[in-house]
Computed example of a mutant assay.
Amino acid sequence: MNLLINELYKEDIKHAATLELPWKKLSGKTVLLSGATGLVGSFLIDVLNYRNAEFGSNTKIIALGRSRQRIYDRFGLQGDTDLFKAIEQDVNDDLCPELLSQNADYVLHLASNTHPLQYSTDPIGTIITNIIGLRNMLDFAADKKAERFIFASSVEVYGENRGDTERFAEDYLGYIDCNTMRAGYPESKRAGEALCQAYMKQRELDVVIPRLSRTYGPSMLKTDTKAISQFIKKGVDKENIVLKSEGNQLYSYSYVADAVTGVLYCLFYGKSGEAYNIADPDSDITLKDMAKAIAEYVGTEVIFEIPDATEAAGYSKATKAMLDSAKLKTLGWKADYDMKRGLTRTIDILRTI
């Protein structure tokens, strides 16, 4: 799919790329990102490419992914340029000589298994990307004396709400049953955050940790099996929305443009060693209300269906997970897309590509 020709998507990129941020920090610098073709990583690269094209930012981008050609295809390139380099690298493997020969001023580890089918069919890969893959990226950043490292963590580190808070602040720690297959994702994100703290102490690396809420948007992968992604796909195809539970789960969500600007605020303004929640109260919604909103927008219905065993194994057991983003807002960040605008925008964009 070619998002870059869609006018609405280009508006989103321009909006993020023209925020009043200290972009000069990236001028003449090199930014390395894992997960370059993922939901968040690809949007962030689009923003950096826009800054280079429209403002002459002269920021070199090193994009890591499992397929070099997929990277080129995603960003409409025939090959590397002076300001863009694609490197085929599974971050869980030993880093290749091509990557090790590069330098980077900022390193962002955005690669991760982030949806239920991956959790249930590749639980090993889910864990090691958040630990071994992270370690490889931390070693690279420390060896190259990078100015700052970003580890994209998750709302899932908070576990289940114990009923003692309405929203998860950064110092909240809920319950996770670690002796389950599904615990691999949240526990490895927790371990990853601890690993970042170890590298700060032992390798003197500057690290900031954005904790993303459930993120969605037009840059989502076709293989994404999160409930919201499935709902959106049905909406795009004007099919009935399939709800595989009663739909009472209440979660925080973020449109990808807001998630990326949150990451940028962490990159530019975040305090070293701190974690910051990225979420907005206007995007808190239950699954059934979300399904209803999409169905009403596209003129279809919501139907209920029992998930199969493989799907169910990857589902979160948390029924209420809302983030408190007050800490990030003290840095100046705010969300610009509420739930209704984000959903309808995503559907409208995906319908045209």
Rank of each mutant, 00 (worst) to 15 (best):
residue 257 A to L: 04
residue 166 E to T: 06
residue 286 T to E: 06
residue 281 P to M: 00
residue 227 A to G: 03
residue 337 Y to T: 02
residue 164 D to Q: 13
residue 72 Y to E: 04
residue 145 K to I: 00
residue 211 R to S: 04
residue 71 I to R: 08
residue 321 A to F: 02
residue 206 D to G: 03
residue 239 E to M: 10
residue 68 R to N: 04
residue 317 K to H: 12
residue 148 R to F: 04
residue 158 Y to I: 03
residue 171 D to Q: 06
residue 89 Q to K: 03
residue 284 D to W: 08
residue 96 C to A: 12
residue 176 I to E: 05
residue 239 E to Y: 01
residue 20 E to S: 14
residue 316 S to R: 09
residue 316 S to V: 04
residue 12 D to I: 01
residue 153 S to G: 02
residue 78 Q to T: 11
residue 338 D to T: 02
residue 307 P to H: 07
residue 243 L to D: 05
residue 35 G to M: 12
residue 297 Y to F: 14
residue 240 N to S: 12
residue 56 G to V: 10
residue 104 A to F: 10
residue 150 I to D: 03
residue 15 H to D: 13
residue 244 K to L: 03
residue 191 A to G: 02
residue 318 A to E: 12
residue 78 Q to L: 10
residue 288 K to S: 13
residue 87 I to L: 11
residue 106 Y to W: 09
residue 111 A to H: 13
residue 114 T to Y: 15
residue 196 C to F: 08
residue 57 S to H: 13
residue 14 K to T: 11
residue 70 R to M: 07
residue 135 R to C: 08
residue 227 A to C: 04
residue 203 R to D: 07
residue 225 T to A: 08
residue 310 T to P: 02
residue 265 Y to T: 01
residue 288 K to Q: 12
residue 56 G to C: 10
residue 62 I to C: 09
residue 70 R to G: 15
residue 347 I to S: 10
residue 15 H to Y: 15
residue 61 I to C: 08
residue 187 E to T: 14
residue 47 V to E: 05
residue 110 L to Y: 13
residue 224 D to G: 10
residue 34 S to I: 05
residue 172 Y to A: 02
residue 193 E to C: 02
residue 335 A to E: 05
residue 144 K to A: 01
residue 202 Q to E: 15
residue 234 K to E: 15
